[in-house]
Design a binder for these strands. Structure first.
Length: 223
DNA sequence: TGTGCGATCCACT
DNA sequence: GTGGATCGCACAC
């Protein structure tokens, strides 16, 4: 499969944010802390369509639109916070507006955005992005794969494509502009439809409808 | 100190 | 559709 230009009839690549001019027009300020100090399910839904901007140490800017999320709340047996605070999940109990990154299956770095005030222990897992800036660099980081739609169509892939590690990126404040990772408002917040469904990749808590994605987006991960 | 497993991905059948 | 990779953490002993 090639790297061809999406045609206007290709609905799978229909997210409207497609060029640097669009990007620059919304580079105002990151979403404020108050955005994250709310109900976690509301934050998970409202994060859809928002832009994650990643600055690499060499100055390269990577970005992508959030197209799939999952909410992890207090009392959820699938949540890392379910058994209380430990050194591993401490960042999840931090104040909303920070990252919580952990290693899954020994190899994948998973990106979560912490919600609620400090001490609560809730977060939103970012499961899929639609790449916007730095696509060539993301390809390199993902081992040179050609398929654009496989770059960031899963939580482990996002960690690799954005070069996120527990050591360097856990507990980052994502509400400040100088941060290596920040989330910006969407330019066209009403240009998509949100689908609500059950979460995937779990062994417990499988029936809770806490997974959200943008309808029709090809980046959304599969069971 | 030891052991089992997981909010996954990919190659292979 | 299935199984291997791979390792930090939680929990048992």
């Amino acid at each position: 499969m090639g790297v061809g230009c999406p045609s206007s009839s290709d609905q799978s690549a229909a997210f409207p944010l497609q060029n640097a001019a669009d990007l620059l027009s919304i580079m105002t300020d990151p979403l404020p802390r108050s955005f994250y100090l709310r109900d976690t399910v509301d934050v998970a839904v409202d994060l859809l369509g928002k832009l994650i901007v990643r600055k690499l140490p060499d100055g390269t800017r990577l970005s992508g639109v959030i197209v799939e999320t999952e909410a992890y709340v207090t009392g959820d047996p699938a949540s890392h916070a379910f058994r209380g605070q430990t050194p591993r999940n401490a960042a999840m109990f931090g104040e909303g507006g920070h990252t919580y990154i952990y290693i899954s299956y020994g190899i994948h770095s998973m990106l979560n955005l912490v919600t609620q005030p400090a001490g609560v222990g809730e977060a939103v897992l970012i499961r899929a992005l639609e790449p916007v800036d730095g696509i060539d660099r993301m390809r390199e980081l993902r081992g040179g794969i050609d398929d654009r739609y496989a770059l960031t169509s899963g939580p482990g892939k996002i960690g690799e494509a954005l070069s996120l590690t527990v050591k360097n990126d856990n507990g980052l404040d994502i509400t400040s502009r100088p941060s290596p990772l920040a989330v910006y408002p969407a330019p066209h917040p009403d240009a998509f439809e949100v689908v609500t469904t059950t979460r995937i990749g779990l062994t417990v808590g499988v029936d809770a409808p806490w997974r959200f994605y943008i309808k029709g987006n090809r980046q959304v991960s599969r069971r």
